[in-house]
C-alpha cells in the first residue's frame, strides 16, 4: 500500500508539474494578451513528437533533442502569433475561436504525419532510486526537477528583472506601461511565444516517460486551465501549486475511488475550492 500511495503521489506530482507548466503559459498569456490560448495543449503535443523524432528518428542525444523541440515549438508559436493571435489581442471570443481552430489543424497534421498509433520513445535514463524501500524511477524525478526549475526561474525573472516588472506593470495598466516606454507589442508576442515554448518543454519531457499520440494535448490544456483557475488567474506560483494539487488529487483519488472517473476528481476539487474562494486560492497575488 505504501508503494502504491507513494507511486501515485509521485505520478500526481509529475502530471501536476506538467499541468503547472502549461497553466503558467495559460496564465501569462491571459494576463498579457487577454485571451486563453487553448492551443497550448497542441503545442505540448508538438513538443512531444519533436523530441521523439529528434531522438529516435534523427538520432540526437535526448538533451539536444529537448532543446531542439523547444526551439521548434517556440518557432511554431511565433508563426501562430504573427499570423493569428496578433489579431485577437484582448478579444477573448476570437482568441478562443482561433485557438480551437489551431488545435484542429495541428492535431490533423499530426495524425496525417504520424498516424494515430501511439509512439514510444526509447528509455532515456532507465533505472530507479530506492528510497526507504520505495521505488522511484530516475527519469520521473529528473522531469519533476526540471519543470520545477523552469517554473521557479520564470517566477524569479518576473519578480526580479526589468522585463518581468514591465510585464507585471503591463498586466495592471497597459497604457501606463506603454507611456513608460515598454515595447508592448514585443512584450505580447514574447509572452505568447514563451508560453508555447513552455508547453513544448512540457511535451518534450513528457515524451520520455509516456507514450504519445496526436490528441494527448486535449486533457492537458483542460487541466491546465483548471489549475490556473484553481490558483486564481494571474498567479505564477499559483499555477504550479494548482497543477500539483490537481495531479495529486487525481492520483490519490484513483487509489480509493474508481479510476475511470479520475478526471472528475480534480473537477470536484475545483468546484469545492471555488465555492469558498470564488477568485481562486491565490487571487490578488503575483
Amino acid at each position: 500500500m505504501g508503494q502504491l500511495i507513494v507511486g501515485q503521489l509521485l505520478n500526481g506530482a509529475i502530471v501536476g508539474t506538467l499541468y503547472g507548466i502549461i497553466a503558467l503559459g495559460v496564465t501569462l498569456t491571459f494576463g498579457i494578451t487577454g485571451i486563453v490560448n487553448f492551443a497550448l495543449g497542441a503545442f505540448m503535443m508538438l513538443g512531444c513528437y519533436m523530441a521523439w523524432y529528434l531522438t529516435d528518428g534523427v538520432g540526437m542525444p535526448y538533451p539536444v533533442a529537448v532543446v531542439g523541440a523547444v526551439a521548434i515549438t517556440s518557432l511554431a508559436g511565433l508563426v501562430a502569433d504573427q499570423t493569428l493571435f496578433r489579431f485577437t489581442r484582448n478579444n477573448l471570443v476570437n482568441g478562443l475561436l482561433v485557438s480551437i481552430g489551431l488545435i484542429a489543424v495541428m492535431e490533423g497534421a499530426a495524425l496525417l504525419i504520424w498516424t494515430s498509433t501511439p509512439k514510444n520513445m526509447e528509455y532515456v535514463w532507465p533505472g530507479v532510486f530506492m528510497v526507504a524501500g520505495l521505488v522511484v524511477p530516475k527519469m520521473k524525478l529528473l522531469v519533476v526537477a526540471l519543470l520545477l526549475a523552469v517554473i521557479l526561474a520564470t517566477y524569479a525573472a518576473l519578480t526580479r528583472t526589468w522585463i518581468g516588472r514591465a510585464a507585471y506593470a503591463y498586466a495592471q495598466n497597459p497604457e501606463a506601461a506603454e507611456l513608460m516606454g515598454v515595447r508592448t507589442k514585443l512584450l505580447q508576442s514574447g509572452v505568447v511565444v514563451y508560453s508555447t515554448g513552455l508547453a513544448g518543454l512540457g511535451g518534450a519531457l513528457y515524451a520520455s516517460l509516456y507514450s504519445i499520440d496526436p490528441t494527448l494535448g486535449a486533457v492537458y490544456i483542460l487541466k491546465a486551465v483548471e489549475a490556473a483557475i484553481l490558483a486564481g488567474i494571474g498567479s505564477v506560483m499559483g499555477s504550479l501549486f494548482g497543477g500539483v494539487l490537481l495531479g495529486v488529487t487525481e492520483g490519490v483519488g484513483s487509489i480509493y475511488l474508481p479510476i475511470a472517473f479520475r478526471d472528475a476528481y480534480g473537477l470536484v476539487f475545483l468546484v469545492a475550492i471555488l465555492l469558498f474562494k470564488p477568485a481562486g486560492l491565490f487571487a490578488g497575488r503575483k
Binding site: 507585471y168 495592471q172 495598466n173 497604457e175 501606463a176 507611456l179
Partner: peptide
C-alpha cells in the same frame, strides 16, 4: 496621463 494611471498593485 489623465486619471493618474498608477500601477495600483506596485
Amino acid at each position: 496621463p489623465e486619471g493618474r494611471q498608477a500601477f495600483v498593485k506596485f
